[in-house]
Nucleic acid binder design. Sequence first.
DNA 1: AACGATTCGTGAAACGTTTCACGACCCTGT
DNA 2: ACAGGGTCGTGAAACGTTTCACGAATCGTT
Lengths: 333, 333
Amino acid sequence: MKRGTMPTMKDVAREAGVALGTVSKVFNDIPVGESYRQRVLDAAQSLGYQVNSYARGLKAGRTGTAALILPNAYDPYFAALADNVCQALARRGYRMLLTVTGSDPDAEQQCIRMVEQNKVDGVIGLTYNPALEISPDVPFVSIDRYFGPAVPCVASDNFGGGQLAVEKLTELGCKRLAFFRIGTDVPGEPDKRLGGFQTTCQQRGIEHTTLVLNDRDGYEPFRTFLREHIQDGRPEYDGIFCNTDRLAFYVLAMLEDLGLRVPEDVQVVGFDGVRQFGNDVYYCSTIVQPVAQIAETSVDILLREDRSDLPSLICLPVAYTPGGTTRDGEHGQ
Amino acid sequence: MKRGTMPTMKDVAREAGVALGTVSKVFNDIPVGESYRQRVLDAAQSLGYQVNSYARGLKAGRTGTAALILPNAYDPYFAALADNVCQALARRGYRMLLTVTGSDPDAEQQCIRMVEQNKVDGVIGLTYNPALEISPDVPFVSIDRYFGPAVPCVASDNFGGGQLAVEKLTELGCKRLAFFRIGTDVPGEPDKRLGGFQTTCQQRGIEHTTLVLNDRDGYEPFRTFLREHIQDGRPEYDGIFCNTDRLAFYVLAMLEDLGLRVPEDVQVVGFDGVRQFGNDVYYCSTIVQPVAQIAETSVDILLREDRSDLPSLICLPVAYTPGGTTRDGEHGQ
DNA sequence: AACGATTCGTGAAACGTTTCACGACCCTGT
DNA sequence: ACAGGGTCGTGAAACGTTTCACGAATCGTT
């Protein structure tokens, strides 16, 4: 970056014949006489002046940048989040610093530090690290993970999602339901999907079971479960609610391997709302998380002026969407 | 962000009993006597000092941040790019500013401006905007789009990819090949996929045709083409090379609708290497772009010290990967 | 017509770094 | 023992903004 070549506020002030402070005011939307404002704008235009946001950041403390911390950026749900948060921030004139941590606790903590050190105006984080230290110096909004009343958390209505899944599977005629889940056991909001499932099943007297695995168990126990629960060529559990779409895909594959037909023999519902390439077609029936709303709300809370009375948990409504790929009726739901 | 609460270099200097400049040197890896260095480090540790990168950015001109500009972040290829670029930058101690433009030319130009104004150290851009003005003040690396000899471009070997697709389809026994493409006609590197396809077909005397559509045409012409090229229940073109995986998915769906079997009746190869959730399973047979290498190389060139003799175009090797979903053998290839 | 209140542009100080000319100190060679 | 050269820590100046106390100008009131 060539230096000395960029015009500064001082140059603009000289060109416009006004004081330095006046120029500053113009670029900070502080009321200034219209004729002055115009002169400054013209001068800035002709000089090609642009505010140096590092000088601004240094002096004013606000930098116009917020950070988003994600485990990774390739998972479709996270990618959608990154996209929407970026747009929501841009709409408010903010830039987005994206950091992927690989879910490594050290890396995450390091990222938070980097971010503090970088003096971003705020941090939105989706992290499963239970021991994460969040500096009280930087506004923080957590997604999908409740850190306690002091840290605002935005999440889907995971409990309601579990409930919805049960309702839909029931509507589709399923009699016996199974809940599948794999993943690190962390105190995140997504845990509540199980709660919603169980509670609703119990309330309605629906036969059900759950199979919750750790990451290290791998997916095979699901296959074993499915294989061992076939009677007379038909599955004992005719409705399967998977904790994520990803798991749902595996389950669909396993069912096919086992010769079970979807949806004739068994119905499958996932969670997340992973779409094909951003259009409105979903790979499988799923509880869709309102990603755009999550992003918008998080940004909204993050940038709120009055930080004295922030909500501690915001649950956004999910929706059931039948799967329909372009391969019409493939999953049949 | 509370102010006045953060310790500064001056505080560290006082605490350590050294001069301001010495502290600065320690944090810039400029040689300093070991005893001094240790004293500074200890003092910084005990005060919880962190370099204020906005002050650094202001004074030194380097900010430790690079920007990545993408049309969006949800497309799997772009998402993978964002992920890998972020990691590559992090490995070098840089942060990544991500901006999504929605491919709107104005937005893109606006982003470039914002980014200049933000004084990032460099910009990596994937943009199809032919009229984009790139400021010579900021180091720029283009991905997938050749702007001329003055702007370094990193891309997959798209021509080679086209060639590879023809070779693989031929190996699989295909006799007549079709190339499908949809998307804005821009002078990007991906154009060369067509060139590689055609050239190779001609060289080897393989019967072939191409069907290139504009975005506004939609996908239906492909369906029409496929329907009109069936004879005796078998497709006249038994090998289809699609410009992107996305298109390949549509084509697979259309083939199924038309009652044509993959791979018995017709083989399909896509381009990009879209994976399921970051593991090594691909949805369909495809020419895989080396995303990690593209990211690494782009960052490498962007941050190169000596900017006097930069390459103008770097093509990275692609690989053919048979599709295999977890739904074993679904696409059969 | 004169005075107080209000509005609004002014310019210097400060933000926390990096950089660089300077000088203190030490080592070597005669 | 002294001069010359080299090493290395020092501290002031500068980076481009924002902020704020100040004073000039304007307006309304008595």
